[in-house]
């Protein structure tokens, strides 16, 4: 609870529901990471609430990707531990799925095989995995593109394939490392809206890394602000954006704009 107290919550005081101990899908405990001579992360403590979308935001090189990959089990921490569903992480697991910044699609495989690839690796039968893959291909808006190859798709469409692949393995926690950084602004907005919708439909825990303050405020339930290297948690913000409103209304909403502005001010303290 002490962590909650010094957390600057910008918005309404927490209601009675939030007072109950939140159910953490991922718990990060005292994570430190030092590459050979670079200290990337120092003492990260963080609970990532189940069913919510949490965003890691911070200056370039502050260790966002490092933290995400430690949680994914792709790289080892120097000290500390990560618990997913209460169990310590010792490598990648079926309850976590990763969406890569550069898509990481198999160039020699069709959209169908790429989306079904996680299931293929798990030994699912062809009919079973294709049925699932077809569902998620439609869910990310790529129906009709099943037999195309990645090089026949635009950047935005490729990332949808990456997203569908992560959804298809039915993990509890979805991790996305700057998934929209390689797509244009229009596609990006559409994506953000899709992400919000997906979060509501899929009831999964999303852990999201971005450079963009607007994007973070727009899509997140919770924003974790990291300081410059070595990365530490400097602030946790709950934007409380009402997603029932239309995207345009939200982007003009004074509350939304204030939140963006105050994060800016916070970041400026240590950018300068």
């Amino acid at each position: 609870m002490t962590a909650m107290a010094d957390t600057a919550t910008l918005t309404r005081p927490a209601g009675p529901a939030a007072a109950a101990k939140p159910d953490a899908a991922v718990s990060v405990r005292g994570i430190c990471k030092t590459y050979t001579d670079v200290e990337a992360l120092r003492g990260i403590d963080l609970d990532i609430e189940r069913g919510k979308l949490t965003t890691l935001l911070g200056p370039s090189g502050c260790g966002k990707t490092t933290l995400l990959k430690i949680i994914a089990g792709l790289i080892d921490q120097t000290s500390g531990e990560v618990l997913v569903n209460g169990r310590a992480v010792r490598g990648p697991g079926p309850e976590r799925a990763f969406v890569f910044q550069d898509f990481a699609l198999l160039p020699w495989a069709t959209v169908m095989r790429n989306v079904a690839f996680g299931l293929e690796l798990r030994g699912a039968s062809k009919t079973e995995r294709e049925e699932k893959a077809r569902h998620y291909i439609a869910e990310v808006g790529l129906a009709g593109f099943e037999d195309k190859y990645p090089h026949e798709l635009s950047g935005g469409m490729r990332q949808r394939v990456g997203l569908a692949r992560a959804l298809a393995v039915d993990a509890d926690v979805l991790m996305l490392d700057e998934p929209f950084s390689a797509v244009d602004e229009q596609t990006r907005r559409k994506f953000q809206e899709d992400l919000i919708r997906l979060r509501e439909v899929e009831k999964k825990t999303f852990l999201f890394v971005t450079h963009s303050i607007e994007e973070a405020v727009y899509v997140s339930d919770r924003i974790v602000l990291l300081s410059r290297r070595p990365g530490r948690i400097s602030e946790i913000i709950e934007p409380k954006v009402d997603h029932r409103a239309s995207p345009d209304e939200i982007r003009r909403d004074p509350h939304y704009l204030d939140t963006v502005e105050s994060i800016w001010q916070g970041l400026r303290n240590y950018v300068e």
Partner: peptide, 18 residues
């Protein structure tokens, strides 16, 4: 071979043979 392709394999639980 792109590093992320290998990480993709590991994160989706590919065995060494896969």
């Amino acid at each position: 071979v792109p590093k992320s392709l290998e990480e993709m394999g590991r994160s989706y639980l590919a065995s060494p043979v896969q």
